[in-house]
């Protein structure tokens, strides 16, 4: 563990505001991380999914967390598309 705080800010553009809202809703349970050395905050603004990760666990942990978030966004996006195709 290090005292240095490393932060990443991610912005993902979506096709619509509804899609951005659904993705944030889908991945929001992943925001809950035990301990205060890793904080994840995700929200949507208009057609964008925005995410801030603050990490005191080192760069490797920050990168893994970003990987996990991006993967979750990808799965949520895939699932939304498959549901929309299903209608």
């Amino acid at each position: 563990m290090t005292d240095r705080v490393q932060e990443a800010y991610v912005v993902i553009m979506c096709d619509g505001a509804g899609e951005a809202e659904s993705i944030v809703s889908a991945i929001s349970p992943d925001n809950i991380v035990p301990g205060d050395d890793l904080i994840v905050d995700t929200w949507n603004e208009d057609r964008e999914v925005r995410c801030v990760v603050s990490c005191r666990r080192g760069l490797r942990s920050l990168i893994s967390t970003l990987d996990d978030i991006l993967l979750s966004v990808k799965i949520a996006d895939n699932t939304l598309q498959s549901i929309q195709k299903d209608v």
């Binding site: 895939n78 699932t79 498959s82 549901i83």
Partner: peptide, 9 residues
């Protein structure tokens, strides 16, 4: 997600 029909990645 799989049961909702998502495939690919």
């Amino acid at each position: 997600a799989i049961c909702l029909g998502s495939r690919g990645s």
